[in-house]
Amino acid sequence: MKRVSELNKTEEHEGSGRPAQDHAAFAQVARGYYTPIVALFTATLIISNICATKGVQFFTDHSVQLGPLEILPISTDGAFFLFPLAYILGDVLSEVYGFRATRRAIYYGFGALLLTVACFSIAIRLPAAVFYENQEAFRTVIGTTPQLVAAGLAGYFVGQLLNSVTLVLIKERTREKHLWARLIGSTIVGELADTLIFCSIAATAIGIDSWRQFVNYVIVGFLWKTLCEVLVMPITYRVIATLKKREPSYAPRESDPLHV
């Protein structure tokens, strides 16, 4: 009520020749680390989905097979080095801020990906200038096919939600103990779902045309992302500990952790 009366008072004094208050009115930005983490989380998702349109192979001079599994060459996509960061950030959000806040971040990321795809589509269809000679290259690089869009959105949405739910449910049982179990357990569940969904939809769009390549694509992607989680766990531990110490609202809650 006080704020409303102050605004009304401001309106009453407009045109009087005197300022109704000392300075212009602005809303305050929420303090804390949640916003920059969500910004980095969203940027990682957008960049990863662009890089993932490129098929990548390592050890192409070798051919090693084990039954239906193609061991070498290793087939993956161009986002293999960056995408694990999205799950690491998702773990940090879930551990410190809970499921509801992480779900909000996932929605932000989903919306940002849709906006990115829409903007790319419009930019491709805009008439090229007579002096612009890279229209086809531009279309090739950012002209994500509907197949890859569906793969990225579906894999990300399901995988990230499962990752967050799993971590929060494990934390409800372990409280502040066994952080490693929450980080690894949630990553296994989330990454497995994400990798299966994305690879199943996107494989043919990036040039994978055999069952052996597909199995290799799934296994390599899943193992790599899980290995990244393990390798950077000391850093994740430090980041989480710092955030818990510096966020004044971090405290036990009395209600269901999935709805708090």
Rank of each mutant, 00 (worst) to 15 (best):
L258E: 04
R173N: 06
E229F: 10
I170A: 06
E254G: 13
G185L: 09
L227N: 09
T195F: 12
F222V: 03
L161A: 03
V218S: 08
G190D: 08
R238A: 00
R238C: 01
L179A: 12
L169D: 12
S164I: 02
W224R: 10
S210P: 10
P257M: 03
L243I: 00
A193L: 06
P252E: 07
E172K: 15
Y250P: 06
L196Y: 12
L196Q: 10
F198C: 11
T187H: 06
K177F: 04
E176D: 11
L196S: 05
A203H: 15
T236F: 01
T236Y: 01
L169K: 15
L162P: 02
E176T: 12
K177T: 15
P234D: 05
T195D: 13
I197N: 09
I184C: 02
D256G: 08
R253E: 15
A202Q: 07
K244C: 02
T187C: 01
I240Y: 01
K225Q: 02
V165G: 03
A251G: 13
A203T: 03
C199A: 13
P257R: 01
T236N: 00
M233I: 05
N163W: 11
S255M: 11
R246D: 12
Y250S: 04
I206F: 07
E229S: 08
S200F: 14
R246P: 04
T166G: 01
G190Y: 08
G221P: 06
I184H: 04
I240N: 00
A251Q: 12
V220L: 08
I219R: 12
L258D: 07
T187G: 00
R246W: 09
P252N: 09
Y250H: 14
M233P: 12
Y250Q: 08
L243W: 02
P248L: 02
E254Q: 15
L179Q: 14
F214D: 10
M233V: 03
L162Y: 10
G207H: 13
G221N: 08
D209T: 15
M233H: 10
S210T: 14
V239A: 01
R175C: 03
G221R: 09
T236C: 00
V218N: 08
K225G: 00
T195H: 10
E247A: 04
E176S: 09
D194A: 10
F214V: 03
L183H: 05
R253N: 12
G185Q: 08
R253Y: 14
K177E: 10
T166F: 00
E254T: 15
T166P: 01
R212D: 05
L162F: 08
T195N: 13
P257S: 07
G190E: 06
V165P: 13
F198E: 14
K245D: 00
I219Q: 06
L223K: 05
S186Y: 07
S186I: 05
R253Q: 14
N216E: 07
I208R: 11
T242S: 05
R212G: 11
D194M: 09
K245M: 03
D256W: 13
V230I: 13
N216C: 03
E176C: 02
L167T: 07
R238D: 01
R175D: 04
